[in-house]
Simulated assay, not measured.
Amino acid sequence: MNTTDKLRLDKWLWAARFFKTRSLAKAAVEGGKVQLAGNRVKVSKEISVGDTLSVRQGWDLREVTVLGLSPQRRGAAEAQLLYVESEDSIAKREAEAQARKAAGGALNRPDQRPNKKQRRHIHQFKREQ
């Protein structure tokens, strides 16, 4: 870990292994998927130790506190030392994952694909609306 006081947000997200590349980290920040203390930020925002970030990855939302800064991407074990996830965040993520898993069988899917006549009716119905 480096002893710098501040580091660009996209670089830290990449070094902490939230995203595979800095360009993916940049796209996530620009898309509003990463927030600093509840506020949208720019990619070049400099973060410091103690800042609280919200990082959305797919279905999951992680609330993390920055513990260290590193301008270099290292192994996963070292990357996990750069942040700590809050207990509430972990509990929420696990509960949501269980709910998704339980609801997975509840989706009603047809036994077969519609035939040509049924597709025509579907297209006609969609055009009328």
Rank of each mutant, 00 (worst) to 15 (best):
V84Y: 14
F18P: 05
R93T: 04
L107Q: 10
E63H: 10
K6R: 14
T65H: 12
L7I: 02
Q57F: 01
L36F: 10
L7N: 09
S70V: 02
D88T: 02
R120L: 15
W59G: 11
A28W: 03
H121A: 14
G31D: 03
V55R: 01
Q72P: 04
K33E: 14
D111P: 09
T65L: 08
H123W: 13
L9C: 11
K116S: 15
P71Y: 05
L82I: 04
G68W: 06
S70T: 02
W14F: 03
W12Y: 11
K33A: 13
H121R: 08
R93Y: 00
L9W: 02
L82R: 04
A95C: 07
E78I: 04
A103Y: 13
V43F: 08
R40G: 14
Q112E: 15
K92D: 07
I122H: 08
K26F: 02
F125N: 03
H123M: 13
S70K: 03
H123I: 13
I90W: 10
K11E: 07
R113W: 11
F18G: 10
R56F: 03
A91G: 01
A95N: 13
S70N: 15
V29K: 07
E87F: 00
V41E: 12
G68C: 05
A95I: 07
P71K: 14
D51A: 04
R120F: 01
G38E: 02
E94T: 09
K26P: 01
V49E: 01
W14A: 00
R74C: 15
W12P: 00
L107T: 13
R100T: 11
Q98E: 11
N115W: 02
V29P: 15
S48N: 09
L61Q: 08
M1C: 03
E78D: 10
G105W: 04
K117P: 04
M1L: 11
